[in-house]
Design a protein around this nucleic acid. Structure first.
Lengths: 220, 220
DNA sequence: AGCAATTATTGGACTCAGTCCACAAACGGA
DNA sequence: TCCGTTTGTGGACTGAGTCCAATAATTGCT
């Protein structure tokens, strides 16, 4: 973190963000997510309703603060093994990066998104916010894998077929692994007090998917 | 269809549903999905705004009329091979059922959900509705596969580990295959005029996932 | 100190989706 | 014709998210 405090001009931010997160956590426990309005959150945090949207783009952002923090490390974990050139190494890199990210979640803090999901089925907002985050990671993985698959040297027609075929394979793999990881998170959250770390769940869930795509690229 | 017209009492339905679908299709072309309000749709259809919610639970339902129609066949296609007992056969059944369902979509009619998704990134409503439909199919596949995996006869400790492990595997597989199928649908929709049938896309996308899970259950 | 530029905060008005409810309209059956 | 049932309608209401103009707090410059 080089430029931690570039000393920008203008009115400094208050402690609004932290207070909003804290207030929302309390209220979600007392009333659920759906039963809490933005107005209640801002009132308890001691700020205006308009201020809420200076810090969060939507009410549902509050469900994902923990997840977003963990997910922020995903791009770095992915590029960490950027030297890998082949598609198989790319799959391995994705697998390791996902395990690395999920290692940040222990039995203690389960993100709001997961607990509230079980609590009230389909809220709409929750599902919308979930999918938008999911798709963000999908484009990340798709680009990472896509850049390392196909076009090995020049048009030597090795394996991956046409450009469209390779795009489909990359995207399908991205969505499949991430979906498996999401499934693991869901099962882990439901596991109750007996749940340990998240990583083993994710590892077991994504292993078959990764194996399937590795096989696809090795046999050609 | 046995009881197509049980001749119920009460005021008969008008042609509201068809008119609403038609009106929305026109307006989505003229002004996109996000730029169209429910009020506009109902006005063009010649009905009241309240009537809209007699036929659709949300505005986003209109994006999925084609998809929902196709998806309605999925449970039947799945149970069609209910005799299969092992997990490998279950994976095969899911693969075939998905191909069967996607066979209903040709190059002509692409569902609104797919075209509008590319058109305007994240609408929120669209993503919420997408995920809720996705999860509905996930529970379907999870149950189907889960019922055919593990507990082969009695506790002979063959392969699948504990009950929790098997639940995780079933759910992860369900989400992974369906995510791959969704990826295929997205790529297919983006393919433009040159796209042919949907089924080949889906087949290519889900094959590696199915292969991975088959291997998981064969080698034990 | 005074002043300009910059950024945070605020209140309020606004649009729209979705819910709810009471009432009118159209039907079948007794 | 009266009754129960179901669809259609108008209107009021909540709450999320947007927009904007005004104000407060701070930095940098003169």
């Amino acid at each position: 973190m080089p430029d931690h405090e570039p000393k920008r001009a203008g009115r400094p931010r208050g402690s609004s963000r932290a207070m909003l997160e804290e207030a929302s956590a309390e209220l979600f426990l007392e009333q659920t997510y759906a039963g809490t309005t933005i107005l209640q959150i801002t009132r308890r945090a001691g700020v205006s309703r308009a201020t809420f949207f200076n810090y969060f783009t939507a009410k549902s952002d509050l469900l994902w603060v923990d997840v977003d923090a963990g997910l922020a490390r995903f791009p770095a974990a992915l590029e960490q093994c950027a030297a890998a050139c082949g598609p198989v190494e790319a799959v391995n890199a994705v697998e390791r990066a996902l395990l690395q990210v999920s290692a940040a979640f222990g039995p203690g803090q389960v993100p709001w998104a997961l607990t509230q999901y079980e609590l009230m089925g389909t809220t709409g907002e929750l599902e919308a916010s979930a999918l938008s985050r999911f798709m963000a990671q999908v484009t990340l993985v798709t680009r990472f894998v896509g850049a390392r698959t196909g076009t090995p040297a020049a048009g030597d027609g090795t394996d991956a077929g046409t450009e469209a075929d390779r795009e489909l394979a990359s995207r399908a793999f991205a969505m499949a692994v991430l979906a498996a990881a999401a499934a693991a998170a869901g099962v882990w959250a439901r596991a109750g007090v007996t749940r340990g770390a998240l990583a083993p769940f994710v590892g077991a869930a994504i292993a078959p998917v990764c194996a399937g795509y590795r096989a696809l690229h090795t046999v050609g």
